[in-house]
C-alpha cells in the first residue's frame, strides 16, 4: 500500500514539466523514506535525479518498496487534468501495481485517474558521492537567462570558475562572448551569488541540456552548480522542504 499526498500539486506538475523533455520512461521508486527517480536521456549524456522526502508530503505511507514504471508523456496527460492549486494524491493498493491512481482535489471538485504502469528494466547508474572543487550558488532565473542568451551564439557553453566568481563564455562561428557573474552577499537570499572554489574549473557543455532543464527554475529561486575538472556537472534545484531535482551532465572535451 502506497499513498503520497502533495499539499501543493502544482509542485509535482512543475517537476514533471522540467524533466519531460529530457527523459521518456522512468521508474518511480517509493519506499519508507520517500519517492525517488533516476533516469538518463536517450543519448546517455544527461541524468535526471529526483529525491522527495516523505516528511515533505501532507500524507505519506509506503509499507513496502515499490517500483512504478511510467511514461512521462502519459503522466503529463493525466496531470493536465489537474489544477495548479490542487492537492494531488498518488496511490496504489497492490505490491506489484499495474496502475497508479491519482486524486486531484480542489475546493469545488475532486477527480480520480488511473495511469497504466509499464515494466522498465532500466540500467541504474551509480553516481558516486563526490566532493566538488567548485560550487556556485546563483539566482536560477539569472542562470536560465545566461544559458538562453549564450546558447543563441553557440551550442557549446564554457564555464570557468575562480575565486572572483563564475564566467560563462561562448566561441561560435559568428563570434564570441562572455558573461562574468559577480559574487554578492546581498541579504536577499534569492539574489545571492556564492562561489566556493577550492580548485578552479574550466569545462564545456552542450547548452541545450541546460535550456531543457532550466524549466525547473520554477521550483526554486536559486540554482546550485557543482563542478570538478573533467567530471560531469551537477545542476541542483532545491525543492523547499521536500528534496531536490538534479541534472548530471557530461562535459564536452577537446578531442
Amino acid at each position: 500500500m502506497f499513498e503520497a499526498k502533495f499539499e501543493d500539486g502544482g509542485l509535482f506538475k512543475k517537476i514533471v514539466e522540467a524533466i519531460k523533455e529530457l527523459v521518456k520512461n522512468v521508474n518511480l521508486e517509493a519506499n519508507g523514506t520517500g519517492i525517488s527517480l533516476q533516469a538518463m536521456d536517450t543519448s546517455h549524456v544527461a541524468l535526471v535525479a529526483l529525491q522527495l522526502n516523505e516528511k515533505g508530503f501532507k500524507k505519506y505511507r509506503c509499507e513496502k518498496s515499490l517500483t512504478m514504471g511510467l511514461s512521462i508523456e502519459n503522466l503529463q496527460k493525466i496531470l493536465k487534468c489537474s489544477g495548479n492549486d490542487d492537492q494531488i494524491t498518488l496511490r496504489t493498493q497492490d505490491e506489484e501495481p499495474t496502475t497508479l491512481s491519482f486524486t486531484f482535489e480542489s475546493k469545488n471538485r475532486i477527480s480520480e485517474f488511473q495511469l497504466n504502469l509499464m515494466s522498465l528494466d532500466q540500467e541504474q547508474l551509480g553516481v558516486p558521492d563526490t566532493e566538488y572543487s567548485s560550487v556556485v550558488r546563483m539566482p536560477s532565473n539569472e542562470f536560465t537567462k545566461i544559458c538562453r542568451e549564450l546558447g543563441n551564439i553557440n551550442e557549446a557553453i564554457g564555464i570557468e570558475t575562480s575565486k572572483e566568481g563564475i564566467k560563462f563564455y561562448v566561441k561560435g562561428d559568428i563570434g564570441e562572448g562572455q558573461v562574468s557573474v559577480k559574487i554578492n552577499d546581498t541579504e536577499k537570499p534569492e539574489e545571492r551569488v556564492e562561489c566556493e572554489v577550492d580548485e578552479p574549473v574550466n569545462l564545456s557543455f552542450a547548452v541545450r541540456y541546460f535550456n531543457l532543464f532550466n524549466k525547473a527554475s520554477a521550483l526554486s529561486s536559486q540554482v546550485i552548480l557543482s563542478m570538478s575538472q573533467d567530471q560531469p556537472l551537477v545542476i541542483e534545484y532545491i525543492i523547499e522542504e521536500m528534496g531536490s531535482l538534479k541534472l548530471y551532465l557530461a562535459p564536452k572535451i577537446n578531442d
Binding site: M40, S43, H44, V45, A46, L47, E123, Q124, L125, G126, V127, P128, A156, S204, A206, Q231, P232, Y248, A250, P251, K252, I253, N254, D255
Partner: peptide, 14 residues
C-alpha cells in the same frame, strides 16, 4: 573541436 562524452564514461552501472 569539442566532442561530447557520455555519463557511462564517468559513472558505472549499478
Amino acid at each position: 573541436k569539442l566532442i561530447q562524452v557520455i555519463l557511462g564514461y564517468y559513472y558505472s552501472n549499478n
